[in-house]
Design a protein around this nucleic acid. Structure first.
Lengths: 217, 217
DNA sequence: GTGTTGTTGACTGTCGACAGTTGACAGCTT
DNA sequence: AAGCTGTCAACTGTCGACAGTCAACAACAC
């Protein structure tokens, strides 16, 4: 419990807290109490503070001096700004992926898309898991570690938005088709087309989320 | 010494450490000693650790478990990866700037360019300060806070590279011309042209840095 | 002389406690 | 009754100390 076996307590706390936030177990807008949470995780306040600051640097928490940390609430303007960033990153990634993809990359993309279609046909639901898998597979083909890392952080924030939003099944088919066009462009090695397909895809997802945000508040 | 007057000790430590790293006062590759640095800044290890972790999350330090933090050394691959990220962000910013720029934005850009030309003619030197100012002015015109923040972080890492690199005056005139073309595209409101101009500009800067890196270290 | 192993030192990771600040509640004034 | 002021509790920010770990050095075997 005390000696860092393989991962430091702070590192474990980061992952534990990340899961708590992303799963929605800590409600949006809720303040985080350091002592209480530290006891809950069975560690001291020191490592927990490190974890909180780390998650804050990733945008999963907002820090208020002397008032602790809160899970940020989604604002329409913030959604727009976040998707502008995501679009910049993922369009570039799509372009690079189209230029650098290997046969293995294309195969992996086809597999993810196929599994998504199966899942959508069977359970009438398009799991976020497979959507994330698709974007990550595409990212892997881009072979740009720095962009990949930033995209991971942004996608994480989008996941945080999703936990508070309802989903419209009609959009899932549209996203599916977007993914198809994306794979096609990447397979053809057309960077410009891939970037444009990604731009349209993200514009659609952004519009969906904006609608959900304005509807809920 | 003890009460947080307006900014917490950790916050002050972040800025102090950032300056120490960016100014090169802490040599590249040098390990940071927590106790020694804490005494030097007149604070305890707690806030200093927070500052170190924060700077690490910004990429200005790398953390090695049980071995503390080091100022990262520039690798050719890392330079390429970093500029891929920077290109993705700043091209998007240039495109948005071209679409959203106001008359005031264009005036500000012209002023920065004019001052740069004066400085270059007079002192035969193109200060990094004005280069940064140009990119920040362009960024302000894009009106995307999320992208702006990420660009700021990336540029900071580039500055860190610059502190260890020599400069070739011949490239400064080229950069100057790049800026001119950029302003022209933004003023015309041509997003695609602005993005392409930025891509070329950054490709040139990246090549310059790669040459310096491979020559030196 | 080279490779291996035991020891030592310095440093990080972690903890518990204290001080300062913030927000809220109660009491007083008008 | 409404507004203001003083007090109080809870929480964060900070500190110093302890324990565990890693790397370098020295002694030894081969």
């Amino acid at each position: 419990m005390t000696p860092p076996l393989h991962l430091s307590l702070a590192g474990q706390a980061v992952e534990a807290l990340r899961e708590l936030v992303l799963s929605g177990e800590i409600p949006v807008g809720e303040r985080v109490n350091e002592v209480e949470l530290a006891q809950r995780l069975g560690i001291s306040r020191g490592p927990l503070r490190e974890a909180i600051r780390h998650l804050a640097s990733e945008g999963l928490l907002v820090l208020v001096p002397h008032r602790g940390a809160r899970v940020p609430v989604a604002d329409a303007d913030e959604v727009r700004a976040l998707f502008e960033l995501r679009t910049a990153l993922e369009c570039a990634a799509a372009q690079l992926a189209a230029q650098r993809r290997t046969a293995a990359d294309v195969t992996a993309l086809h597999e993810v898309v196929a599994e998504s279609r199966r899942s959508l046909r069977a359970g009438a639901r398009f799991p976020h898991r497979l959507d994330l898998a698709f974007h990550r597979t595409l990212l892997a083909a881009a072979r740009s570690p720095q962009i990949a890392e930033q995209v991971r952080l942004v996608q994480q924030r989008v996941v945080l938005l999703r936990t508070t939003l309802d989903e419209d099944p009609s959009h899932q088919h549209a996203s599916m088709d977007d993914h198809d066009r994306l794979v096609e462009a990447v397979e053809a090695g057309d960077g410009g087309l891939a970037a444009e397909a990604m731009r349209l895809h993200l514009a659609r997802v952004c519009a969906q989320m904006l609608a959900a945000v304005t509807a809920r508040g």
